[in-house]
């Protein structure tokens, strides 16, 4: 009786501790998001005097002013276009490359692979000036293509690593069966490898979409014309050297966060599965 009570109490105590810890982590993660949303309804004055998460007065106009002041529509479409283009580019190139690294034998295979992996270690801002000069020489500076190619390059290493790890553990019998059915190497990639790598592709899509959606420094360096800039650059107009227009910035950020939250929600069921695919493939 006593032993049963002891174990029951121990179990409850551990559960309470675990849940308290998880709750604390969840609050820490959610607080910045809630603060952003709350601040988007306040005035510049009340942001600094009223620290509550529920504003006394809701200033919905902040959203309209933010949309109007930074020409939101155009930049929003630019960001959608860049995100879709870059993610598609990364999915195609990285899956082809990962498949080749995993399945084919060619001279310098390991060297090339390690070179890609080494690229993951290079901090992106360190390569901006070099990228600028390269694009300038190729006459791709200030063009969407130049920006998209750079961003595809930025996302390749991690994506190749994730997909290669998956393909390494994919049963070879599936490919043999496809080959017997008359599939070419490209056909096997398209009909067998890609459909099976769905969860990993979901991770690649979400991680890269997030990176492209939030990127603004490279865009700022490459583009000279406002018309080509992504949304995040436009939002910087609310952030001054000494004075930041917090209500408008937070309203803009809230709107900008919506598409990426939707993408995450749509793909979340694949994400955990995808991240762990490297360990078990079946």
């Amino acid at each position: 009786m006593n032993t049963s009570f002891y174990y029951k109490t121990k179990k409850i105590s551990i559960n309470v501790l675990i849940h308290a810890f998880l709750l604390a982590v969840a609050v820490t993660c959610l607080f910045p998001l809630l603060w952003m949303i709350a601040s988007s309804f306040k005035t510049q004055e009340t942001i600094f005097s009223d620290i509550s998460l529920i504003p006394k007065q809701f200033h919905f106009m902040n959203y309209w002013i933010a949309i109007k002041e930074c020409d939101f529509g155009r930049y929003f479409l630019n960001s959608i276009f860049y995100t879709v283009s870059v993610v598609c580019g990364i999915v195609i190139v990285s899956s082809l490359a990962a498949y080749a690294f995993s399945r084919f034998k060619f001279p310098g295979k390991n060297i090339f692979f390690y070179m890609f992996m080494a690229a993951m270690m290079i901090p992106i801002p360190g390569s901006f000036v070099a990228l600028y000069i390269l694009l300038n020489k190729l006459h791709l500076r200030n063009t969407p293509l130049g920006y998209i190619l750079c961003m595809i390059n930025v996302g390749l290493s991690t994506s190749i690593f994730l997909l290669k790890t998956f393909f390494d553990k994919m049963p070879k019998e599936l490919e043999d069966a496809a080959r017997i059915d008359g599939c070419s190497k490209l056909g096997i990639w398209w009909h067998v490898a890609l459909p099976l790598s769905g969860p990993v592709l979901a991770v690649v899509v979400v991680f890269n979409a997030l990176a492209v959606w939030n990127e603004y420094i490279l865009a700022l360096i490459i583009f000279d014309t406002k018309t080509s800039m992504p949304l995040q650059v436009a939002l910087q107009t609310f952030q001054g050297e000494f004075v930041t227009n917090y209500p408008l910035l937070m309203a803009g950020l809230t709107i900008a966060a919506v598409p990426i939250i939707i993408l995450y929600l749509v793909m979340q069921k694949y994400i955990i599965k995808g991240v762990t695919q490297g360990a078990v493939v079946g």
Partner: peptide
């Protein structure tokens, strides 16, 4: 071109190009 650190990078890159 804001913020200022990104602006600095842009000007340096533009100077080289």
């Amino acid at each position: 071109y804001a913020p200022s650190d990104a602006y600095s990078q842009k000007v340096r890159a533009a100077a080289q190009g």
